[in-house]
Amino acid sequence: MNQYVRMIVVLMIISIASGAVLALSYEATNPKIQEQARQTLEQSVLNVIPGATKMEVVEKQDMTIYVGIDDQGNKKGISFKATGSGFNGPIEIMVGYNPREGKLTGIQILSMSETPGLGAKIKEEAFTKQFTQKPVEDEFTVKEDVEAISGATISSTAVADAIKASLDKIVKIYPVGGDF
């Protein structure tokens, strides 16, 4: 066989075989991957809305809102994703909000790449619990009504700013005291 034809044929066969293997493993793993992603999301929604046992996804004015519902079917609160830029990259936060009381119900950091040992402490409960029961009218200014992590002012500010920015949009859709 001509060596050029041989080169093309061999490369092609290897590529086709590899394509087939990839397609099969994608088919085998994709449902599981989707399921994992959904579970992680649901878990974070339930974490920031106390009392909720399942979630419902609502699209409103190009914001995705997750409504937390308890066993009796009562709505316990809503939650949404807030994004801010931290010291090393984006920070993604799940924020729980109860419009009836006008207070946050909790926050959870979904992803971040802050400095280990310093900024990464924004993930810890010692930092996140200060946002629970925080009235949404607050300023969310670090060192005034938000306590910063020492040595990680930028990361702390990023979290507070991100929450405040998304909250401003959410409060227009779900005003304080209103129903949801």
Partner: peptide, 27 residues
């Protein structure tokens, strides 16, 4: 595998196994 295209062939084989590991680890 012909000598002249051995590197692309190796890379395809390696990339396939890597992607399989990647998918299974994600799942």
């Amino acid at each position: 595998i012909p000598d002249k295209v051995r590197i692309p062939c190796y890379i395809i084989v390696v990339a396939t196994f890597t992607t399989v590991v990647d998918l299974f680890m994600k799942a």
